[in-house]
Design a protein around this nucleic acid. Structure first.
Length: 832
RNA sequence: GCCGAAGUGGCGGAACUGGCAGACGCACCGGACUCAAAAUCCGGCGGGGCUCACCCCUCGUGUGGGUUCGACUCCCACCUUCGGCACCA
């Protein structure tokens, strides 16, 4: 008997798949007329080519491959493409260090990943492979940028932005994690810079509302996006500055507390700070405070525990509900980026305002009275009362519930022209310009006469020029390339200067799933009809770390494309699965912790099939799991066991000995039944639940049963038929997980291409057992088990129960007060 | 502080709709094969107790309560771990 030798087997089948293009799917001739019901777009998040794949990638692509292969064998036309998120800082930083051109590094890295994916046996349509750094790709990224610009969805403005001093570039809000840079953790600084933004805030409402269009997304991802968008309902209320002809609007979620406003606050960056203090004695102190506030980092400013600071402006505002004059202060706990940058302060009912008022000796006036802490006056209050209650000291709204009163007050203000209901979002616009080299150039030209002018669409792509030095200096390295920078204004033909910033790589990855549909199209980013045919992605798989980054950006992009009439759907990913991470030695794998496991080593030692199988067998795919060095040994042993079982059957049964299967005899019948039960379980686990770990364990059980029964079964003709059927079933079921060894065994069993073979179907008649083990309980405690025929009636079961000696031992001399009979399961006698 | 997920043998995990807790795998122990070892095949493997190899009893799914004939599963409170948000008005 040949030994199980994964190296030979895997190379052999990978070559077949590559030469035959086994997983390539052509676009339909007439996409509009084509039947979409049998297509399935299976997609894993595309890799960033930073050298080699790590275990997280292996898990990601193996899971996707199992689903793709499973669906394919279930009759779906599976669309399973692959590409590379090839622009970006990692590559650029390596380029700076080594002096090798980023394009060359990318070529090496993508080539390497391509090889690794082939070695893992992932079933991909390689004819659609793409890299986002190819001009044929980023041409269309630039094209979208211009279309966004024309719609007013891409704009340039000067604003305080996040600056990472280590990466020497600005970052989007989503890329700042706990005050640090997402990539390098360096503390992010605030700088006032002119930058390009996408107006994602215009889509806040749709990004929230369209969750209803999704079929199956993890609840926590939706929650994370909800939190990130941070929608708050409330009111915009206008306060008038005394003596000046100035109205300042504020946003509040608590219009019910308006009568308790005892002061007014402006953010230090508020444009009216200078205006209202002009000519006053307080002007200097205010200016000092503002300057101080500006120097603070965003992290420091965002600390909730910090003591409140502020300064009086010398001006007063008029409260629109009661005409009261309240002092205007400037304080850094008011954020310019949220709401209107100004707030009304109600110290009795907002903890932050309360702290400020106590420090500055401002009146605390209770206007909502509630249970417990809500009793008492402002003087005795120890902290703000933020709960619901009844309004007091609020004019004609006294005695009303605060929630309802809030709505009435808002309506009243609206009729007076002093306010209106309003919604505010935490979400900020997406800052997409980067002062770095390795990205798609922003296709814009600055002209002294015409201003900002987009490059004409027919002149795209704006190619990324070569430079000598990629080191970041606060502006993109391409700014030093005069040939690139100097150009003619597309509008007036006069001298113009090109934009030298490049795009955030998240722009590139916001539409790649569309390009796969039509990757070689030179005339358009994609053919609308073809995209309509394949899209949306039926199953998207990736890491949860992209919950508010890639996944939200891609949703936004798709909605804009929908509005532009380029696609007919509003959500790109119908179903999302987020995989858990693989930990090693108690921590997530990272180079800095030195606990990285290289997949290549394991492929070399055990083969791709073993690695794939182990990674899925470790635990439920959505949970974080711990890599165990000895664990993989077990899966390798299992594949060896499968191999020996199949080979023994091939040798002893012969290729065409018995084609069907009979099931005379108890052992034969039991094994046939087990085969069908396993088919049913594996099918359900893979299709409905993505529970690959239990699917694999079910196959292991079948193999174990076959080992125990085989010596007896080899003796008879029926037995041999059953064994052949068992071997074929195991191979068919294991194929999505371990495709190479299964393809090989399938061939040795005398068949052809396994990946074209229909998925097996469980025969109902074998699923039902003829008898089962009935559990007998007394007062809910297990006392006996008895085998009973499946057809037994409730009465029969009761009779069995009372016939049991063990049960009798516990019911003796007691009164049976209740009999619970669950056919198929148990009988429970309740006694007193 | 708010929101969410998770806590089961020595370990990873199973038990899908409340019904035999611990499937499957790892580790460990024993047996077969062998001159021997490895590999392989077979068996055992939560704790405690007993008239201790057979059988039987009892406790046991983070902690404390509750609902139920019956709870790993449902409800309440708490503890721990992980993740998200957090001076967002």
């Amino acid at each position: 008997m040949d030994k199980y030798n994964p190296a030979d087997i895997e190379a052999k089948w990978q070559q077949v798949w590559q030469e035959e293009g086994s997983f390539d799917v052509p676009n339909p001739e007439d996409p509009a007329a084509a039947d979409r019901s049998s297509k399935s777009y299976v997609l894993e998040m595309l890799p960033y080519p930073s050298g080699t794949l790590h275990m997280g990638h292996v898990k990601n692509y193996t899971m996707g491959d199992v689903i793709a292969r499973f669906r394919s064998r279930n009759g779906f036309s599976v669309f399973h493409p692959m590409g590379y998120d090839a622009f970006g800082l990692n590559t650029e930083n390596v380029a700076i260090k080594t002096g090798i051109h980023p394009a060359e590094l990318t070529r090496q890295n993508t080539g390497n990943i391509n090889k690794q994916l082939h070695r893992l046996g992932v079933s991909i349509d390689w004819s659609r492979e793409l890299a986002t750094c190819d001009p044929e790709y980023y041409k269309w990224t630039q094209y979208f940028f211009i279309r966004f610009f024309e719609r007013g969805l891409a704009y340039r403005k000067e604003a305080p932005v996040n600056w990472c001093p280590s990466c020497a570039t600005v970052l989007a809000n989503e890329q700042v994690v706990q005050g640090g840079c997402e990539r390098c953790s360096t503390t992010v600084e605030q700088r006032n810079l002119a930058q390009w933004f996408f107006k994602i805030t215009d889509y806040a409402e749709r990004l929230l509302g369209d969750f209803s269009l999704l079929e199956s997304w993890p609840e926590r991802v939706i929650t994370m996006q909800r939190n990130w968008i941070g929608r708050s309902e409330g009111a915009e209320v206008v306060f008038r500055v005394e003596e000046l002809d100035l109205d300042i609007p504020v946003f509040t979620t608590r219009p019910d507390t308006l009568f308790g406003a005892t002061f007014f606050l402006l953010a230090p960056e508020h444009e009216l700070v200078g205006v209202i203090t002009e000519g006053l004695d307080e002007a200097e102190a205010v200016a000092d405070y503002v300057a101080q506030a500006r120097q603070q980092s965003m992290v420091d400013r965002a600390m909730a525990e910090r003591e409140k600071t502020g300064v009086f402006t010398g001006r007063y505002a008029t409260n629109p509900v009661n005409g009261e004059r309240i002092p205007i202060y400037v304080s850094d706990y008011v954020l310019m980026e949220y709401g209107t940058g100004a707030i009304m302060a109600v110290p009795a009912h907002d903890q932050r305002d309360f702290e400020f008022a106590r420090k500055f000796g401002i009146e605390v006036r209770v206007v909502v009275s509630g249970e417990g802490a809500g009793q008492g006056d402002g003087e005795s209050l120890e902290q703000a009362f933020e709960e619901d209650g009844v309004l007091v000291d609020s004019g004609r709204f006294d005695g009303k519930g605060n929630r309802a009163a809030g709505e009435e007050i808002t309506a009243w203000l609206e009729s007076e022209g002093k306010g209106k209901a309003a919604v505010s979002y935490r979400l900020r616009d997406w800052l997409l310009s980067r002062q770095r080299y390795w990205g798609a150039p922003i296709p814009m030209v600055y002209c002294d006469k015409c201003g900002i002018v987009p490059v004409p669409l027919e002149e795209l792509p704006v190619l990324l020029p070569d430079v000598d030095d990629y080191a970041p200096r606060g502006q993109s390295p391409i700014a030093t390339n005069e040939d690139f920078v100097n150009t003619a204004c597309p509008q007036c033909g006069g001298p113009g200067r090109r934009e030298t910033d490049t795009m955030d790589t998240f722009v590139d990855s916001s539409w790649y799933f569309l390009r796969y549909c039509d990757p070689h199209n030179d005339d358009a980013p994609f053919d609308k009809g073809v995209a309509e045919y394949w899209m949306p992605v039926d199953q998207y798989i990736g890491g949860v770390e992209h919950a508010v980054l890639h996944l939200m950006y891609a949703r936004f992009f798709t909605k804009v494309l929908y509005d532009l009439g380029l696609v007919g759907f509003q959500e790109p990913f119908r179903n999302l699965f987020t995989q858990g991470m693989i930990h090693y030695r108690g921590a997530k794998m990272s180079k800095s912790k030195g606990n990285v496991i290289n997949p290549d080593d394991h492929v070399e030692r055990y083969g791709a099939d073993t690695l794939r199988l182990y990674i899925l067998f470790m635990g439920p795919p959505e949970l974080d799991v711990e890599w165990q060095d000895q664990g993989i040994e077990g899966t390798f042993r299992f594949l060896g066991r499968v191999w020996r079982l199949a080979m023994e059957i091939i040798e002893k049964v012969g290729e065409n000995n018995v084609t069907g299967y009979a099931h005379e005899g108890e052992a034969a019948q039991a094994l046939v039944r087990k085969c069908h039960q396993t088919i049913a379980k594996v099918t359900n686990d893979v299709a409905e639940r993505f529970r690959f770990n239990t699917a694999i364990s079910a196959i292991m059980e079948l193999v174990n049963d076959a080992y125990l029964a085989k010596d007896e079964l080899f003796a008879s003709k029926e037995g041999r038929g059953v064994l052949r059927f068992t071997a074929e079933t195991v191979v068919k079921l294991l194929d999505p997980f371990a495709p190479h060894v299964c393809a090989e065994l399938w061939q040795r069993l005398g068949n052809d291409r396994l990946w074209l073979e229909p998925w097996p179907k469980a025969d109902e008649q074998f699923l039902e057992e003829e008898s089962y083990e009935l559990v007998l309980q007394v007062n809910g405690k297990l006392r006996d088990r008895v085998r009973v025929p499946a057809s037994a009636s409730k009465e029969d079961l009761l009779a069995v129960a009372s016939g049991s000696d063990k049960v009798a031992r516990y019911t003796e001399g007691k009164e049976v007060v209740k009999e619970i009979v669950v056919p198929g399961k148990l009988v429970n006698l309740v006694v007193k």
